[in-house]
Every structure is written in structure tokens, then in C-alpha cells.
Amino acid sequence: MSAGRPSRSRAAYRRITAHYGADPLHLLALLACFALAGYAASRVFAAGIWVGFAIWFVGAAVAHDLVLFPLYALADVAVQRRRWGRRRPGPHVHWTPWINYVRVPVGLSGLLLLVWFPLILRRSGETYRKAVGLDSNPFLGRWLLVTGVLFAGSAVAYAVRLRRSTPRRRGTRRGRGPERGRRDGGGGS
């Protein structure tokens, strides 16, 4: 009799696993997660702020997944598809990839704008002035300055890279990945 029990519970375990699609522990962990999240949500509801909260909560995921991500992904694809500037024909001339020398300064500058746009675009002007006692005008200039430094650094890094890679007569130098100069540009900020 007792020998049948472990095998019966094992069969039940297998049945649950088959129907549910994962270990029962998986289900327990998720239920615990939803219980805590549900309780927190009930506090939001009780506090009377649930409409705004839900809009911001779901809006945050939507804004990232369906706005920010497609924007930067499409921009990247568009820049790469376009034939900017001169092409360098000829099989013997090594063509230095330039895309990362654009990606890095654009990416960093865009990131700074994404994080600090209320300051840079003076979205909180009056509140800021009332609190801090100064106005938020300097931030636009500072952001432009940082952006300029990033682009200049990247341009210099690219120029150095081009100079190093064009004259083949100087002999080959080993161990230089194509993105090395780019990283130097990023670090120069």
C-alpha cells in the first residue's frame, strides 16, 4: 500500500507539470509575486491614485517598447542604409567602418537628453526657479557643449583611425579591432 504513494504523488506532479507547462514551484513563485504586487496595487487603489498610476505604469512599458525602442532601432537602420558621403571604391583600399563613430556620440547625447530633458528643455522652469532660486537656462548650453565634445572626440578618433588604416606600406599592425578607436572617442567625454 505505502509503496504506491510516492509513485501516485509523482504521477500527480507529472500531471500538473504537463498541464501547467512548468514545475509547480514556478507556479508558486509567480503566485507569491502576484499576491504582493496585488496588495501593493490595492494600496494604490485605496490611496485614490490608481487611474494616474495605471496610466503611468502601463504607459511606461508602452513608451519604451513601442515608442523609444522602434525610434532608435529605425534611426539606426535608416542611417546604415543611407549612403552618406563619399564611398571609397577599389578593392585594395580598406574601408573603415564609420557607423560606430556616429552611434556613440548620437547615442550618448540622446541618452543625456532622454534623462535630463525637463532641465534641458526647461519643462520645470517655474517650479525649479522657486525651489532652487536659480533658473534652469544653463542646462541647454551645457548639453550642447557635451554633445559638441562627444562629436568632436568621435571625429578625431575616426580621423586617427583612418590615418592609421589607409597607408598599407607602413606595415600591418596587429590586434586593433575596428571599434577600438570608437571606444577611445566615447571615453573622451
Partner: peptide, 23 residues
Amino acid sequence: QLFYVFPFFYPAHLYGAWIFLAA
């Protein structure tokens, strides 16, 4: 950044943290 586009920062940031941490 004192950009108060939501009028409920303290409770929202606290309760949101619990939901986020649970997940």
C-alpha cells in the same frame, strides 16, 4: 528635476517599487 507631471510622487514611487520588486 522637479518636473511634477504626476501629483502623487511619494506614494506612487513607494507602491510602484513593491510591484517592481515582487516581479
